[in-house]
Design a binder for these strands. Sequence first.
DNA 1: CTGAAAGCGCTTACAG
DNA 2: CTGAAAGCGCTTACAG
Lengths: 329, 329
Amino acid sequence: MKDVGAVAGVSLATVSRVVNGEDSVRPELADKVRAAVILLGYRRDLTATNLRRADRHSASIGVVVEDVSDRSTRLLRGIETVARRRGVLPLVGSSDEDGARERELAEASLARRVDGLVVVPSGRDHSYPQPERDAGVAVVFVDRPPAHIDADCALSDNAGGAFAAAAHLLAAGHRRVGFLGGRETSFTTRERLHGYRRALEANRLPFDPALVRMGLHDSRAASEAAGDLLAGEAAPTALVSAQDVITIGTVDRLRTLDLRNTVALVGFDDLVLADAVDPALTVVAQDGDRLGRAAAELLFARLDGDRGAARRVVVLTTLVVRGSGELRR
Amino acid sequence: MKDVGAVAGVSLATVSRVVNGEDSVRPELADKVRAAVILLGYRRDLTATNLRRADRHSASIGVVVEDVSDRSTRLLRGIETVARRRGVLPLVGSSDEDGARERELAEASLARRVDGLVVVPSGRDHSYPQPERDAGVAVVFVDRPPAHIDADCALSDNAGGAFAAAAHLLAAGHRRVGFLGGRETSFTTRERLHGYRRALEANRLPFDPALVRMGLHDSRAASEAAGDLLAGEAAPTALVSAQDVITIGTVDRLRTLDLRNTVALVGFDDLVLADAVDPALTVVAQDGDRLGRAAAELLFARLDGDRGAARRVVVLTTLVVRGSGELRR
DNA sequence: CTGAAAGCGCTTACAG
DNA sequence: CTGAAAGCGCTTACAG
């Protein structure tokens, strides 16, 4: 900027004013400055701008997701979409569900003076951004509620989705509907189990633990659990899978057992080839993009001055009917 | 930092030294400083650090991909993995294959003084980061080669993968192998077509344009093209699909035509439920994670002082045999 | 309308 | 070993 001023024959302050689009500078001087800017290929240093500026906005936010290459991709895109409208760029990191890493990543963003933070919480305590929050950094959690901090949060309607999945199967006449779930330490898993139970209740059916398998962490475990369940005395005639990897394992097992056209299945989370499988997969689809947008909107509302109580936004799921869930009893 | 100094009863310079882990400070003073840091919840402002520091490293890089929620997810993860080892955080953006947006995003990163830039190039001219590059910012392109700039680049072995796909089908006895490709403006598409042609040549078969459909931009177009191809006089007995969306459309059409166990298929890019489809999908899998890691390694090598000529790294693909590609003629 | 100067939060020679 | 001071690239009252 100093150099630009030298070339244009004006002070550094004038260059700053032109670069910032102030209209107080005489047009001919402004033109000279702009010419010098182009000549020198000058680009303003936003980090310095940010350091000096009164509002101190870095136009970047920190985003800590579970895994940028997996579950969180659409979420990230949703956040990006909203952020871009404001010229804000996300700094991203994958926590891999590790609370310590989550915190490290969040603090790494904070050290770079982000204006806000969106976190998919993994650890047991999410109070760590409180100091920055008090200093005006917006903090929003997404996909799961945080612990030990009263902050905004955007969630998927996990219970509602699982309810819809189970209710759909019950409506098709099934009375023995199994549930294949992930680890019960997971908030989303618990919510989905809860939705399943509510659907049973609504149909005046008892909750039968013999129809439920939890703690399935990958598709292999899911495949085994499904095989187990289906080999039992009073095997279920329909299954709810609470996660994409579980659905994959279950589909595999139904195929092996030649039960794919016999045992109905509704999965939670949509899958790319869901249409190509036989029968095509009926699923409860989450709207990751909207979830991300909701989180980003909560965040920017805070940056825009919203001082209200912490809000919780729930994004609805959609039942996508394709075939596997419509096999009648 | 000023406040910390006041509380600890030392100068700002001493605080800086302690925070930076210099061992020149007397232990008792250092302890006082650390106590004050904790007391005040002080966290260093990396942006200010970066502004003053001699080396001027911001410990962040810019990453512009096609779409964080789609094709580029594993790539992004690979970059993140390598960057994290160095405490570097990526600023990410999706270009949606729009050259102007790509440039905007890259420049937005550059304005935030990133140490390097990884770009999946979309536009026609990628010389825009040259000024910063001259100033020491590392610039690497990935997935496609850039134009009008002589820079490092990490690519998938598109030609080799397509060669392997076609050769695999030819080895199974097929003589009429079709090719379903995307837009020919795309570098990867052209490379894949080229690999397919090389496989024909290697088997002394002529290239027959009647067996090729290009410009397929989504699964619906692919489905139609596949139907078209298979309805012809001398329909192919095997197909190579050059992209994931094309594979999805093709699988759908083969199923509709009841040809899925008759016409062999090898797809480019792996898919989540590839195992669950009947027959399971044989594909040429790209290693997006490694591609991203390769790009990041090129970048950090430059930051570490590598001044050699621009390098091009090619990441190999893998043929994953599952069934659809092993149907014999 | 324009410039000289202070200062954002830091680091780093330079003295002492 | 420690501190006072200069300065990184900018913005912004304050004069003129």
